[in-house]
Computed example of a mutant assay.
Amino acid sequence: MPEKAWKELNCSHNLYFQPAYLEALEKNNQQLQFSYILLYNEQDEAIAFATIQVVGFYLDNVQNDLQSAIEWVRCVGRKLRLNSSRKPVKILTCGNTFVSGEHGIFIKKDQDKKQVVKQLAKAIVVFEKDISKEKIDAFMLKDFVDESLFITDALHSVGYNSFNVDSNMVLALEKEWHTFDDYLAALKTKYRVKAKKAFKLSSHLRIEEVTTASLKELLPEMNSLYKSVSNKASFNLGHFNIETYLSLKESLKENYVIKAYWLEDKLAGFLSGMITDKNLDAHFVGIDYTVNKTYAIYQRMLYDYILLAIENNIETINFGRTAGEIKSSVGAVPQNLTIYLRHKKSIPNRILSLFLKKIQPTEFRLIKPFKEKKYKNVSSFSQ
Rank of each mutant, 00 (worst) to 15 (best):
P2K: 13
P2C: 12
K4V: 13
E8C: 00
K27R: 10
Q33Y: 08
S35R: 04
Y40G: 06
I47A: 03
V54L: 02
V54S: 03
F57G: 05
D60H: 10
N61K: 08
V62K: 00
W72E: 12
V73F: 04
R74I: 12
R78Q: 10
K79P: 00
K79S: 13
S84P: 04
V89N: 09
L92D: 02
H103E: 10
Q111V: 03
Q115A: 12
K118L: 14
Q119G: 07
I136G: 07
L141D: 02
K142I: 04
K142H: 03
A154T: 15
A154N: 09
L155G: 06
H156M: 08
S157A: 14
S162K: 13
L187A: 03
V193L: 13
E208M: 13
T212F: 15
S224V: 15
S228C: 05
N236W: 06
H239D: 15
E254R: 11
N255K: 10
Y261F: 15
K266T: 15
L267S: 09
A268C: 07
K278Y: 10
A282H: 02
I297E: 06
L302C: 13
L302I: 10
F319H: 01
R321L: 13
R321F: 11
T322R: 08
A323V: 09
E325G: 08
S328C: 03
S328K: 02
K345S: 12
S346P: 05
I351A: 06
F355K: 02
L356M: 05
L356C: 03
K357Q: 15
P369S: 12
E372P: 08
F381I: 09
